[in-house]
Design a binder for these strands. Structure first.
Lengths: 229, 229
DNA sequence: CGTAAATGGAGATGATTCCTCCACTTCTCT
DNA sequence: AGAGAAGTGGAGGAATCATCTCCATTTACG
C-alpha cells in the first residue's frame, strides 16, 4: 500500500548517493529506496512534526520499517540527516539578506523567507526554534546563524528603519510566535502567518504614520473554530 | 509523600462544598481532600498543561489516584471542573475592560490582563486557545467572550487609536503567539511575553512616532539556549 | 464503638513506540 | 542463466506509559 507521493517544495534537492560501510555503493534498488525514505521523511516531518513514528514515515515512503533501520541506525540519525540540510538553508537565507541594497528591505525579506520556510515545515520549527531535539547539531547551526541575523538587524538599525531595542534573540522568538499562529490556523489557511508578520514588522519600524495593509484577511469566527486541531 | 503546597495565585477561590449523589454532604475528610485535589489540579495543569497524568495530580495533592476517581468520574470531568472557573474569569476581564474610560487604555489593559492569565496558566492556554480539548464547553465560553472582545476592539477603533483592520479572531491568535513565546522562555524569565505584547501593541496602534519602551530586555543568546525545553 | 464512608496504590487493561529478526525477493556479476 | 550477496517487509518482542478498578485497611462520626 504505497503512499509515496513524489517531490515536495523547492527545498528538495536529491541527496548524493550513499555508500555502504565498506565503501561499496548501494545496490540500485536500495539507493532508490533510500531516496524515497528521505523524501518521505522530509514530507512527513514537515507536515506533522518530528514526533511522528518511523512506521508512519515507512508507510508514506512505501517501504517497510526494516528498510529504514537498514540505512539509519535509529530514529535520531534519520532526523539529523534531514535537518542538517534544512537548517543550512535558513543560514543561507540570512546571508543572502545582507546582499539586498536597502537594509529595511533586506530585513523584511529575511523575516519573510524564513517565515515561509518555518510555515511550511513544522519539523524545522520544532528542531530549530523549540530546542529540545538534537541540541548539539542545532547549537552549532545557531552559532553560524546568529552573526548573520545580527548583521541584518544592525544594518537596519544604523539605517534608522529598525527600532533600536531589537536584538538577535527577538528573531527566533518572533518566528516561534508566527509558528504558533501557523500551527493554529493552517488547517484553514496556509498563509495566516503573513498577516501577523506584517503586524510585527509594523511594530519593528522606528516610526510609521499609517498601518501597512495586511496581506491576509482575518479568520472569521467560524474559520477559527474549524481550524482547531 | 505529600507534596501539597498550599494556595496559588489570585485566581483561586475555594469551591463550594460538594454533596454526594444522594444529597448527603461529604464527610469532613473527604471534603478536605476534594479541595486539595482541585487546588493541586489547578497548579499542575497551570504549570505543565492538561496532558499531565492523574497520577501526577494525585501525588501533588498528597492523595491516591483512587481518591480522585471517587470524586470525578474520569479525567475529562476533572478538567472541566477546573477550567469552567478559569474561563469564566477571562470573560469577566473582557467585560471589565469596557468600563475603562479611555478606549485604547481599556484595550491595552485587557490584552495585558488576559496575557498575564495565559502566561501563568499553560492549561488555560491549551484549553481556551489551542482548541482540541473539551470542544463543547469551550465553544460555549467563546460565544460569551466574542461579543465582549468585539466591543473592546470596536470602541478603540471608533476612537481612532486601534487600526481598522483588526478583528475578533486576531485576539486569540495574538494570545496564542504570546503563549508560544512564554512557553519557550519561561524557564528563564516569567515575563518575556510582556516584551512581545508591547511590540504587538505598537503594531496595533493606528500610528506612532516613536517606539514604546519595552518592559523586558531581550534574552541573551545564552539565556535563550538555556531556556530550551 | 459500631458502621458506613473514604482511602491508597498495586496492578489489570489497553495503547503506543522503537527496533529486531528472518523467510523471502531482487539485484548483480560472472 | 544462475549462484550468491544484498536487500526487503512487516509481524511481533520489549519497554513504556496512562487510565481506571478493586479491595483490604483506615478514618470519621452519631
Amino acid at each position: 500500500m504505497a503512499v509515496y507521493s513524489g517531490g515536495m517544495s523547492r527545498r528538495t534537492s536529491p541527496s548524493p548517493p550513499a555508500a555502504d560501510a565498506s565503501g561499496r555503493p548501494l545496490r540500485a534498488d536500495a539507493e532508490r529506496n533510500r531516496q524515497r525514505i528521505i523524501t518521505a521523511a522530509q514530507e512527513v516531518f514537515a507536515q506533522r512534526g518530528i514526533e511522528v513514528t518511523l512506521d508512519d514515515i515507512a508507510h508514506h515512503a512505501g517501504v517497510g520499517v526494516g528498510t529504514i533501520y537498514r540505512r539509519f541506525a535509529n530514529r535520531e540519525e534519520l532526523v539529523e540527516a534531514i535537518f542538517d540540510k534544512e537548517i543550512q538553508r535558513v543560514i543561507e537565507l540570512a546571508e543572502e539578506a545582507l546582499t539586498r541594497e536597502d537594509p529595511w528591505d533586506g530585513l523584511v525579506h529575511f523575516f519573510t523567507a524564513a517565515g515561509q520556510d518555518f510555515a511550511e515545515d513544522r519539523g524545522l520549527r520544532e528542531v530549530l526554534l523549540v530546542g529540545s531535539h538534537g541540541k548539539d547539531r542545532v547549537a552549532a547551526a545557531r552559532d553560524r546563524l546568529t552573526p548573520a541575523i545580527n548583521a541584518v538587524l544592525e544594518r537596519a538599525q544604523r539605517h534608522g528603519s529598525l527600532r533600536d531595542d531589537i536584538e538577535v534573540t527577538d528573531f527566533p522568538l518572533i518566528q516561534i510566535m508566527l509558528g504558533a499562529a501557523t500551527q493554529r490556523t493552517k488547517a484553514v489557511s496556509q498563509d495566516m502567518w503573513q498577516r501577523y508578520l506584517t503586524l510585527i514588522l509594523d511594530a519593528l519600524r522606528t516610526s510609521r504614520e499609517r498601518p501597512t495593509a495586511l496581506p491576509q484577511p482575518a479568520l472569521s469566527q467560524e474559520e477559527f473554530d474549524r481550524a482547531a486541531p
